[in-house]
């Protein structure tokens, strides 16, 4: 299998403070990786750095995605190349309907791929199909992006957009936070339905419960800006039983 994402010795800072202190991680096409770790270990920083959030500065290291230097690409080009982040806190955009928002996103991607813009009928059909996938109310689709949405609606809207954009590598940043068990199931099922043989996911989470639905192939523990443990799915159970303290103790300097 070929490497989809290759992170080598990645260091990153925000406001001058180093958060990532040398990450090494390789994701092959088709794999699902879980990144777990206590609060403040750098999980969200990693996902933000991968999609090119301007608040973060990469100070050292390299990231290759589909063999290309990811760090040189603009955030929108990363998106066009199939990198998708389901945000932990999706922002509200008053006055911009989801429909218009998605049309703009889809057509920008198609332009990047040198395809004709999608016609309205086709687009609306696609909206309908993808909406059904995550049980997104058609009324929500006419509302402004995330404006006045509940926590569950926001996350469902994220997965709906993921369905629309058909990413190659999707990063789910704490997608389970703030969800009750039913919402969690709907969101997770949506993610699973979207899984294809050649697509990969990075599932970032604090808890085991999301991983009950989305089965990871490989599990990493991120602590203090480094990946300190990598193992198979059995690590999830171990963490659930023993908590993060033993990891912390093992890594005391």
């Amino acid at each position: 299998m070929e490497n989809l994402l290759e992170i080598k010795n990645l260091h990153a800072t925000i406001d001058g403070k180093e958060i990532l202190k040398g990450i090494d991680l390789t994701v092959k096409a088709g794999e699902v990786h879980a990144i777990m770790g206590p609060n403040g270990s750098g999980k969200s920083t990693l996902s933000n750095v991968l999609v090119g959030h301007p608040a973060y500065t990469v100070t050292e290291g390299e990231v290759y995605y589909k063999g290309k230097n990811l760090l040189e690409m603009s955030p929108e080009d990363r998106s066009h190349e199939g990198l998708f982040l389901s945000f932990q806190y999706p922002v509200e955009i008053p006055g911009v309907s989801i429909t218009n928002f998605m049309r703009a996103a889809i057509n920008a991607k198609r332009q990047y791929l040198e395809l004709e813009p999608m016609n309205a009928t086709e687009f609306l059909k696609m909206m309908r199909e993808k909406r059904a996938l995550v049980n997104l109310d058609s009324k929500l689709a006419n509302r402004s992006v995330n404006e006045g949405f509940s926590g569950g609606e926001k996350k469902r809207n994220e997965i709906f957009q993921m369905a629309m954009l058909e990413p190659t590598l999707s990063i789910l940043d704490e997608t389970d936070s703030g969800l009750d068990i039913d919402a969690l199931r709907i969101v997770a099922e949506g993610v699973n339905k979207l899984k294809r043989e050649d697509t990969s996911s990075l599932v970032i989470t604090h808890y085991q419960r999301l991983l009950d639905y989305i089965k990871p192939d490989i599990v990493h523990v991120l602590y203090n800006g480094k990946i300190v443990k990598t193992a198979g799915p059995e690590l999830v159970m171990e963490l659930e039983e023993r908590g993060y303290d033993w990891i912390k103790n093992e890594n005391k300097q």
């Binding site: 999609v51 090119g52 959030h53 301007p54 608040a55 603009s74 955030p75 929108e76 080009d77 990363r78 998106s79 066009h80 982040l85 945000f87 999706p90 922002v91 955009i93 008053p94 006055g95 911009v96 309907s97 218009n100 928002f101 703009a104 996103a105 920008a108 991607k109 990047y112 402004s144 957009q161 954009l165």
Partner: peptide
Amino acid sequence: SEDQLFYCNQRGIGTEEAIGLIVNGYA
């Protein structure tokens, strides 16, 4: 907000287009 712009960027919409989109939404 920077967040709104970045959100659009992440979804592949360039900054100028994003501003146009947001301003039209506002109006």
